[in-house]
Write a protein that binds this DNA or RNA. Structure first.
Lengths: 345, 345
DNA sequence: TTGTAGGCGTTATCAT
DNA sequence: ATGATAACGCCTACAA
């Protein structure tokens, strides 16, 4: 008695398969009583429709893919779970696909799209290296999360949801300046980054300019090509910075992971955070509240962002709307890792 | 020019569909030249077989599901990525499914199994609450990772791969004892846990016994039902412990996340780690090496475990072997969060 | 070695 | 409101 099919159910109910189909798909043209009776039989024999057959028949497969670029960012963990939940609510399926830092995400996307007959995709992180033209090759609706391109064409072939990286970054660096810091270093993405790295660097520069602080290229530490937003990377960059003998009173890391790595490096150099060097992060990872010292950071509203991403995607899929670009406010959370610039200097 | 099908390819090549099918599925009975020519045409028109159609035809769908129980354990993040890679190498698909702490994982598993015609499943974490009989309902091969049942029936209907939780836990607590600690608290899973929580608690008790230290129930802190292996949970449990006024010189948390939460609580109580209270964790998360103080822990060989899990699963699927139970050695990594019991006491 | 045809479980289009 | 029936794209006997 392997698997029970729609035919079996039909037989059991003494009706035609199409009636059963109508019942399980909430079609209008069906007698409520018939439907109820069918659903009961389905329940009793716990029949579950075969997904492959459905997808084969349907044009779309009711599955949406989540592409995650760059390993080891716990920031995405929560995001994925929220997205998964939203997708499940809509009775869609989700497949997640991790793409290595060097891999082209669009290439991976294209393959997935065809193979699985996706009806939509969500990109998490990444989206450096790729151009809008590349992205346009993906035919299904796409929403970019946390990886907006700087220049948002109104009619871009995709949606996006994120915080305003320039603004939030500016907010943080401005805060650091207000504390009296002038020698503010930044730990940022690669030099060629066209995504969050670039934007957050922009915010940094903007804030410095506002405070009439000259931008010192030696205080800008870029990741190497092979690196990612990991603690290890933050550790390495900070160590280099420390060894460079540049005077620094604070450092802004564009992710909490980087910030924590930086703290470790500072610590190992026999210095204290924030007494000797203040450290600020970005993202709002849980660990920031438990680290010693607790981490000043920009908290991104992860849950809201994820939900909005799903919402927009479904809207676009159902053609209820065209592509949208939505920004959420981040929140500057001040904790122990930053303090006023020591006046005893 | 929507999607190109196997028929189109056949037409393009001037051959029958079965020949094309044979080509893409590496069947033996085909002329190498024909095959090469077909593959070329496929490449040029980048034809990609429709997965749903394949799965419908095949009995199994070549997809394996990963069930992750309990949110927010970064420990599983890496695991999933490694598993994903292994699965992809075999040209299978992976779907991950998070199940809430209260949800029954077997129920979720059953639904998935039918709906997606899985050919195998990997359970990550969890597996408390569920009995072997429940698990037996899942017809496809299952491998339990990091969640072995205490009593392993030789012919259990599943495989498992993990560290020997009793032994590793024993190793850690034994080490703590060797350092001179006698008042050793443990932060563990719920009281009803039948999985890693139970096992690690066993190891703890065993080590204490070896050192003739009486077991003090007040030093055993169980999670509440609603809690999970999170930093927050560790923080809460530790705080309760501190408030209980029990004298403690060290605490063993059965996960690094819990340990970090505990450190925070200790810190906020104005005490120092390890001077006042030594802290040890379990898992070997990256953060352990960057936290202040760095965390003494049992490092689990995540990558090996994940690879082995995939390997075993594929073996069982292909009927090359029956279910296996494999254990890996953990590694006791001593760092700053533990030290010798202060003799000045 | 290769081609033809039937069927996998659904959904959708027709009639009824 | 309901029931046949034809696709959906692929794999696989079976036949050639």
């Amino acid at each position: 008695m392997g698997t029970i099919t729609i035919k079996d159910v039909a037989k059991l109910c003494g009706v035609g398969v199409s009636t059963v189909s109508r019942a399980i798909n909430d079609h209008p043209d069906i007698n409520p009583e018939t439907k109820q009776m069918i659903m009961k039989v389905i329940e009793e024999n716990n029949y579950i429709p075969n997904n492959s057959a459905r997808n084969l028949k349907r044009s779309d497969s009711k599955t949406i893919a989540v592409l995650v670029k760059g390993v080891d960012n716990p920031f995405f963990g929560k995001m994925i779970r929220v997205i998964e939940e939203e997708i499940r609510k809509k009775k869609y399926s989700m497949v997640v696909h991790h793409v290595e830092a060097q891999e082209g995400e669009v290439a991976a996307a294209l393959e997935l799209e065809r193979q699985k007959k996706l009806c939509g995709m969500i990109f998490l992180g990444g989206f450096y290296s790729e151009t809008s033209e590349d992205l346009a090759k993906v035919k299904v609706p796409v929403v970019l999360v946390t990886s907006a391109k700087p220049q948002l064409e109104a009619n871009a072939g995709y949606s996006s949801v994120s915080v305003d990286d320039v603004k939030e970054s500016y907010r943080m660096v401005d805060y650091l300046c207000e504390l009296g810091h002038e020698r503010i270093a930044i730990l940022t993405a690669t030099m060629y980054d066209e995504s969050v790295g670039k934007l957050r660097l922009q915010g940094y520069k903007k804030a410095l300019q506002k405070h009439n602080i000259e931008i010192n290229e030696n205080l800008i530490k870029y990741m190497k090509d092979s690196e990612d937003y990991s603690m290890k990377c933050g550790y390495i960059l900070m160590k280099e910075l420390l060894e460079s003998k540049e005077e620094i009173s604070s450092v802004f890391a564009i992710s909490d992971s980087l910030a924590i790595g930086a703290c470790r490096a500072i610590h190992e150099a026999g210095l204290g955070v924030p007494e000797d060097i203040a450290v600020a992060g970005f993202d709002g990872l849980d660990i920031g509240a438990y680290y010693t010292p607790t981490l000043t950071t920009i908290v991104q509203p992860v849950e809201e962002i994820a939900k909005e991403a799903a919402k927009i995607l479904f809207h676009v899929i159902k053609k209820k709307t065209i592509h949208t670009h939505k920004f959420f406010e981040g929140e500057l959370v001040v904790r122990e890792s930053t303090n006023e610039k020591d006046s005893a200097h």
